[in-house]
């Protein structure tokens, strides 16, 4: 409980994830902000995130053959 009270008792320590506008506002008011450059995976495109998940699940073949040699 002590930590929760401290949260409101002093100046905020802020980490801003994603949208810059929140960080900008706090910074204009003089509060320090650590910005984290975060974007939703694949720009939030569900078709692409689904493909990425399916690729992860399918994994690929278990046998990697070095004898395939260089391609062209």
């Amino acid at each position: 409980m002590a930590e929760k009270r401290d949260l409101l008792g002093g100046p905020p320590a802020t980490i801003n994830v994603g949208l810059e506008v929140f960080a900008d506002t706090l910074q204009e008011l003089g509060f320090p902000v650590v910005r984290v450059d975060w974007r939703p995976p694949a720009g939030g495109d569900h078709r692409l995130t689904d493909l990425l998940s399916r690729l992860e699940r399918s994994g690929g073949p278990n046998r990697i053959s070095d004898s395939e040699g260089p391609g062209t």
Binding site: L55, G60, P61, I64, G69, P70, G71, T72
Partner: peptide, 11 residues
């Protein structure tokens, strides 16, 4: 790059 080409499963 050709040395790294045509490897099954490689992204």
């Amino acid at each position: 790059m050709d040395a790294a080409a045509s490897i099954n499963g490689s992204t």
